[in-house]
């Protein structure tokens, strides 16, 4: 972000300022196009109230971002901190397993809660989704445990198992 303006972090300044954005032609051209599209969207929502229900739309539109920023992200960050404190060896495998299984669980959550589907349509969600999810999680965590065991064995030989290898 525009660190051309006063960025006070003197100690980190050299690193921080490298990634600043330049307000060149692309910034203004894409900015104008982008704001035009945003304006079109606002116009569309406001002028089609019968379908868009602007107030309800606004709640869901802003609500999603707020729920992410103020609930989901902090929870994820806290889980990360807890992991760092509690798991001192083979953490990478657990992190991967958590990322993958959290994704699968998040996607399956509405199905597991039984909120979707139509009672009279047997072709929607026709299988045992709970069993399917459990099977997928078993595969993911099985792989994670195997990886962790392998890493812990190698740690003795001081091999950086999950670290960056040179390009």
């Amino acid at each position: 972000m525009n660190s051309g303006a006063a960025v006070p972090e003197a100690g980190a300044r050299s690193k921080a300022s490298v990634g600043s954005s330049h307000h060149g032609v692309a910034f203004w051209v894409l900015g104008a196009l982008g704001w035009a599209a945003i304006g079109f969207a606002v116009w569309g929502v406001v002028t089609h109230p019968g379908g868009t229900h602007p107030a309800n739309f606004g709640v869901w539109f802003l609500g999603g971002a707020l729920v992410h920023d103020l609930v989901v992200a902090p929870v994820v960050l806290l889980v990360g901190v807890a992991l760092r404190r509690k798991v001192t060896r083979g953490r990478a495998a657990i992190q991967v397993a958590i990322v993958v299984s959290a994704t699968l669980c998040l996607y399956s959550l509405p199905v597991l809660l039984g909120v979707g589907g139509l009672r009279d349509n047997q072709t929607l969600l026709p299988r045992n989704e709970t069993a399917g999810l459990l099977a997928a999680l078993a595969v993911v965590w099985g792989a994670a445990i195997v990886a962790m065991v392998l890493v812990r064995r190698r740690v003795g030989r001081r091999v950086d198992a999950a670290g960056e290898s040179p390009p």
């Binding site: 945003i38 379908g51 229900h53």
Partner: peptide
Amino acid sequence: WSFSFPQAHYWAAWAAIGGLLVHVGAKAAS
């Protein structure tokens, strides 16, 4: 929700793609 899904999804897509264009313009260089 109470809105019509196809309509709301359509207009939200314009908002998101607009935001994406602004963002790309601001971040392309860095």
